[in-house]
Amino acid sequence: MKRVLTVFLTIVMLFAIAGCSNSGTTANTPQKPAESPKAEKIRIALVLPATVDDMAWGQSMVEGLKAVQKSMGEDKVELATSEKLGNAVDAGAAIRQYATQGYDIILAHGSQYQSVLGEIAKDFPKTTFAYGTGFTTGPNIFAYDPQAQEGGYLLGMLAGKMSKSGIVGIVGPVESGDAVKYNYGVQQGVAKAKSDVQTRIAYTGSFNDIVGAGNLAKTHISAGADFLTGSSQQAVGALRAVAETEGKYWLSTDMDQSSLAPNHVLASQVYNWEKVATKIIELRKQGTLGGQRLSLNLADGTIQFKYNEKLADKVPAEVKAAIEQAKQDIVSGKVKVELPKK
């Protein structure tokens, strides 16, 4: 017993010593906001509500930032990420820590971070903060807002024109935010393409229940849907369920999910976060630390509509042409995709 205790005690001591020697260095670094925003290396921190590999909202941003890093040079951009901070308490601590450590740009990638950013940003006037989906800005806060309905509209048209059963199914998470915008866009697109094609929406009531999403997709299919779509990180569950049945297609949003089911993902709405992040970096270099609402849309290419190349020949030329026309109309402002008004 005594010997065991001695061993344990020794380990504790070792840890304590290691702790003391290290805490000396860590304790001194922080508490100093970024000195010069014009520093050569730009440091970007990302706070995610879900995971970095969710094949949706989170991963699309991670890959966008990696692309920025690649194009600007590994030595010019430093990236740090914290994930699974769905609750604003932990996210707030993470954001403040990043700000204290002198990160130049802090991206809080969720609509739930609006309040907490507003509070922290005041204490770090030289740091750039950005969050979305949102609209409230501050002197050093950007808010970004993907017009998910625009890509949804084009995907809806595609589904409406190509559906054989006349039923398009949406597997929704929680009826709010981007999911509503996207679903609303899909509905309008389907209706535009063919008035007698139905759009059916069902929700799981969760953002990350992939089993539930898969099950809703199966239910949609057994009730006749042959084109399905849906947003949030649970969408991959629905996608996988679609991939089990021949002749059923999935339309993905946020990012291109065709790698998961190359024979079933027909087209995608892709958010080009690289462009958004680059814009924020440029604005910061010019001295604009925030205060702008950055809209992601088809017009400036921050939202892209992509066919899955492997399946592109399944889409008839006239359908492609009609969608291209609709895209031009949205870009030129001739067609306005509505948003729900309560």
Partner: peptide
Amino acid sequence: LTVGHANMYADNITA
């Protein structure tokens, strides 16, 4: 859930 239903794994699969 993974082998007999979803045929994939993701975070918080049991929900």
